[in-house]
Write a protein that binds this DNA or RNA. Structure first.
Length: 437
RNA sequence: GUGGAUGUAGCUCAGCAGGUUAGAGCGUCAGAUUGUGGAUCUGAAGGCCGUGGGUUCGAGCCCCAUCUUCCACCCCA
């Protein structure tokens, strides 16, 4: 949980709307009852109508001449909110602990975050993010390292991905180049949809967002930019020649790509000028990772933020970070059947429970076998053997040991291989050796 | 925030223009086999048909409200 003042204004207007606000504890409504938020309509008649229409105020039922102004009321009843991501709280943390940390400071963090959004496929109210950030270094080597992490993580998980890279400075440069620096957000939001809705629809959307026909035409070569990275750089260098910011972004991009090329990554990476990313605090490189062959939004994303700590009073501290969406990754692994079978069978051997005497004997054997590093369990109740065997079968436990009267007397235990169905009498040592393979 | 769906057994779903006692498959439990799993057969348990109201002689089915969950858009992880 964070103070709303920490969270508000960091994620854009849409993000502010999606913050989960937490009601204050205590009898806050009483305060509202006597407060100035109930106002006479005679004073505010015009504003009232507007506010009611815009949804920011509502007439109190049975009190025709009074209304509540929600916008003014919210800070009074909700001072805190659930964290929207891990990056902004991290920036707050860094500022508060600035004297205890050595920089560049690196950290990872895995925690739930919340969005007050309508849930749907791949989109949850609460979900886990896994963040990796480096703060206090401008070096582009950090960007390179993060991409290596992405590559390694998804290689380990067995998910094939494409890593999309872009730079906010390039986007700013593009907006500048067509003479509409103020329309940066509108342009990028529209451009971001390119692979989803196609060129024509993007052009329509741009027009709908108040971009003139001439500007859209100038933008089109950038929208349709394809081919090898070198070609893209050529065209963009030309296009951005008037924008210092844009050229700087290009240079950064070129450096990052140059390093990545030499690393021999397992997954593909791609300079993607249509990549925008919504979070408003990014200022340099931006990343987004998509799984190949599944319909799912991005499963990892991030970027560089130059001034996130500045908002909390520590300027000049640049950071770069990424965040894995654990829930989406889980969904994909389920869909692609990537969870290994061995996960389903934690136990290697089950001891059948025959009753009191046998239990005691089994517990001792169990201790020995566990000390040998073999995950084992004793069925907790002396129920029918059939039931216990069924349990082993259903849980994919590969071995079962039966210890009854005969076995206790002879010291030779019955081991059953659930796969082949064969069973034999062996000493404990032999059993351990057999199961351990 | 906008639009569209959904809710019946533990799970997946049927359900006739409104018509007696609401069904199936899977699962669970018991038995055929009292120290042996996967197969088969036999039997059983399990339901305020999301909730509240209404229409009707009669509502799982029609109407209204409400809640849940899902999907698309917006936006985004």
């Amino acid at each position: 949980m964070e103070n709303l003042s920490t969270l508000l204004g960091k994620y854009g207007d849409e993000g502010d709307k999606l913050l989960f606000k937490i009601l204050n504890s205590g009898n806050f409504l009483e305060e509202i009852q006597n407060s100035e938020f109930k106002v006479q309509s005679s004073k505010l008649k015009i504003q009232n109508t507007e506010q009611i229409e815009s949804g920011s105020a509502e007439v109190i039922p049975g009190c025709n001449d009074r209304l509540l102004d929600f916008r003014a009321m919210t800070p009074m009843i909700a001072e805190k909110g659930l964290r929207y991501d891990l990056t902004v709280p991290f920036a707050r943390f860094v500022v508060q602990r600035q004297n205890e940390l050595y920089f560049p400071f690196k950290r990872y963090q895995i925690q739930p975050v919340w969005r007050a959004d309508r849930p749907q496929k791949g989109r949850y109210r609460e979900f886990f993010q896994c963040d990796v950030d480096v703060i206090g270094s401008n070096s582009l080597l950090n960007e390179v390292e993060l991409v290596q992490i992405i590559d390694e993580v998804f290689t380990c998980l067995g998910i094939r991905v494409t890593i999309h890279l872009n730079n906010r400075k390039i986007l700013a440069g593009i907006a500048e180049a067509i003479g509409l620096p103020d329309k940066l957000t509108d342009i990028t939001v529209a451009m971001d949809k390119l692979d989803k809705i196609g060129l024509e629809k993007v052009q329509e959307e741009l027009a709908g967002r108040g971009i003139g026909r001439e500007e859209i035409e100038r933008l089109t070569p950038i929208l349709t930019l394809e081919g090898e990275n070198d070609e893209k750089f050529g065209i963009l260098t030309n296009f951005l020649s008037g924008s210092e910011t844009g050229l700087k972004g290009l240079e950064e991009m070129r450096t990052v790509l140059m390093h990545l090329k030499e690393l021999g990554l397992n997954n593909r990476f791609n300079f993607d000028t249509s990549l925008a990313r919504g979070l408003s605090y990014y200022t340099g490189t931006i990343f987004e990772v998509k799984a190949v062959g599944v319909t799912m939004g991005s499963i990892c994303g991030g970027g560089r933020y130059d001034n996130l700590t500045g908002i909390f009073g520590l300027p000049g501290m640049s950071g770069v970070g990424i965040s894995f969406g654990a829930d989406r990754i889980y969904d994909i692994m389920n869909e692609l059947n990537l969870f290994p079978e061995t996960l389903k069978a934690a136990t290697r051997v089950l001891f059948i429970n025959f009753g009191n005497e046998e239990e005691k004997y089994c517990l001792k054997v169990l201790t020995v076998i566990r000390k040998a590093g073999i995950p084992a369990e004793l069925y907790p109740d002396p129920v029918k053997i059939k039931k216990q065997m069924e349990y082993a079968n259903r849980k994919n436990i590969p071995f079962v040991v039966l210890i009854g009267n005969d076995e206790m007397k002879s010291g030779l235990l019955t081991l059953k291989d659930m796969h082949s169905g064969e069973q034999e009498k062996l000493t404990l040592g032999e059993i351990i050796r057999k199961i351990d393979n």
